[in-house]
């Protein structure tokens, strides 16, 4: 079925822009090659000034934490010389409840694992809380900081945590705002 081939290609494309964030061989989480020359991930993934990134082709490079915001749970790392084109972001208005989404990351150390689902809701999970992209999709520790992408492989959010069977991702426009502030 064509649709299944599409999913396999989508997963391959996303694995190229998804890094493993490690330190001394310990897997800390996932990260997204975006914007060019940088990696974004969750603040809770990088609690130290420098980490090692492992790319999907097996290469490793050291990366320094350029900015970190524990409240937003976001961190920006400088990662020049990866040679991999950065990820493409989705337009915010294409993110709809019901849209097919995929997550790529390294849950429980499984490299480049793919999960599929749909957008369940967009907004806070508790009244007055922050806004999330809530996806009907399974995440596990190690997915943190990895991409949530639409059916065209464009990034809609950064997977941050699970609320039971629900995946919570930081919307990409929040990530972009953080990056603009952090790059100076």
């Amino acid at each position: 079925m064509d649709t299944l081939i599409d999913i396999a290609e989508l997963a391959d494309d996303l694995r190229r822009v998804t890094v493993e964030v490690t330190d001394a061989d310990e897997l800390l989480g996932s990260g997204l090659l975006w914007p060019p020359g940088h990696v974004v991930t969750n603040a809770h993934v990088v609690r130290r000034p420098e980490v090692t990134l492992r790319l999907s082709d097996g290469r490793s490079l050291r990366a320094r934490v350029r900015a970190r915001d524990a409240d937003a749970d976001l961190a920006l790392l400088s990662a020049p010389g990866s040679g991999v084109p950065a990820a493409t972001l989705a337009e915010a208005d294409t993110v709809r409840v019901g849209s097919f989404v995929v997550a790529v990351g390294h849950p429980l150390g499984v490299r480049g694992a793919l999960s599929t689902g749909i957008i369940c809701a967009i907004g806070p999970i508790d009244r007055g809380g922050r806004s999330w992209i809530q996806a009907d999709l399974h995440l596990a520790p190690g997915n943190s900081g990895g991409p949530l992408a639409d059916a065209g492989g464009r990034i809609v959010g950064l997977n941050s945590r699970a609320a039971g069977p629900l995946a919570l991702a930081v919307p990409m426009e929040q990530v972009a705002r953080f990056v603009r502030a952090g790059r100076v």
């Binding site: 649709t3 709809r96 409840v97 019901g98 849209s99 749909i118 065209g152």
Partner: peptide
């Protein structure tokens, strides 16, 4: 548009229609 994108659009449209 590939098959997956059109499935995705169908699902979002179904939520929109059903949600009314």
């Amino acid at each position: 548009m590939n098959g997956l994108q059109s499935l995705s659009n169908d699902l979002a449209a179904a939520v929109d229609r059903g949600g009314r």
